[in-house]
């Protein structure tokens, strides 16, 4: 009897300890990054760091704005492509596809989610870069010669390319989660809608998606968080040119993760260089965290609204 209680306590405390350890990692990491980026913050004002686009480490210029903009470009393009595509695919797989198609499609989607980023990167160079260079860019710059399409970068290594590759990498995750979420919507409520004479699409649009909305938002958050942090594939296809502030989807983009991966550990003799790169990491962490919080905030709001009406 006593042994049982001791065991119970032991198990509970061990698990609590482990849990605490995992939680504290987040804060430790944030704290570490902050500590390391302190030196540069002491010399150069945060405003200059965030809004200047001049990156000349040897001359002491550490403007991060073009990298931040690059991150946003690539992520935004990925989200714009991936979210509608993956939600519609998930709807098809869970609602319309026959059992056989579903049992066939699910493993393939999961496989896609598990492929190493480097393979996506190579695929991006071989397939997406020529597509952007030879078709998309000429088409858009000729037909729509205004804001997000004008560029003088004719290499095909661009924010759009990075975004497309990133979208392909994110959508298996979103599809997978959204599909699971849609399948948790009870059969009876679909029946209720169908028995009123609604078509399948009406039922999906007005009932299923409404019921599944919190889950879908969670799936999108998950996907976008991955897009923010994804490094390798983007680094390979987005251009990563220094000294360019991306003003167009066809400009080369140099997202924060790529900057960190490319430069950290090299040229450490340059003063403040490592501090600047770690500040970039810190900013990335904060952007991702803010985005996540905003996402969960929306989710909470919806859930509360559904509960209270």
């Amino acid at each position: 009897m006593n042994i049982r209680i001791i065991k119970e306590n032991l198990v509970r405390r061990t698990m609590f300890g482990l849990c605490l350890f995992v939680f504290s990692l987040v804060f430790l990491m944030a704290f570490g990054l902050y500590q390391k980026s302190k030196p540069i913050l002491a010399i150069i004002s945060l405003k200059d760091l965030l809004f200047s686009s001049i990156w000349h480490p040897t001359q002491g210029h550490f403007g991060l704005s073009s990298f931040i903009a690059g991150t946003f470009w690539v992520t935004a393009i990925a989200v714009i492509i991936a979210v509608p595509l993956s939600i519609l695919t998930a709807i098809y797989v869970s609602e319309y596809a026959s059992k056989r198609v579903r049992s066939f499609a699910k493993p393939i989607i999961d496989l896609l989610a598990g492929i190493s980023p480097i393979i996506f990167g190579v695929w991006g160079i071989i397939a997406v870069v020529p597509l952007v260079r030879d078709y998309l860019m000429p088409f858009f710059t000729k037909r729509f010669p205004f804001f997000p399409f004008v560029s003088d970068n004719y290499t095909g290594f661009s924010a759009l390319t990075g975004g497309i590759v990133l979208a392909v990498m994110t959508f298996p995750i979103i599809i997978s989660v959204v599909e699971e979420v849609l399948r948790t919507v009870s059969f009876e409520i679909r029946e209720a809608s169908l028995s009123l004479g609604a078509t399948k699409w009406q039922t999906i649009k007005y009932v299923v998606l409404k019921k599944a909305r919190p889950g879908i938002i969670a799936a999108v958050i998950l996907g976008v968080s991955r897009a923010f942090g994804e490094t390798m594939a983007v680094l390979m296809v987005a251009g990563c040119a220094l000294g360019v502030f991306p003003k167009s989807i066809f400009d080369a983009a140099y997202p924060l993760p790529a900057l960190i991966a490319n430069t950290y550990g090299e040229m450490m003799s340059i003063p403040l260089y490592d501090s600047a790169v770690l500040l970039a990491a810190f900013i990335l962490l904060i952007i991702t965290a803010l985005f996540n919080m905003a996402g969960w905030g929306i989710l909470l709001h919806i859930e509360r609204k559904q509960a209270c009406g």
């Binding site: 009876e188 029946e191 209720a192 007005y206 009932v207 409404k210 019921k211």
Partner: peptide, 8 residues
């Protein structure tokens, strides 16, 4: 139906 299925 058996249990009322109100729409959300």
């Amino acid at each position: 139906s058996q249990r009322p299925q109100v729409l959300p």
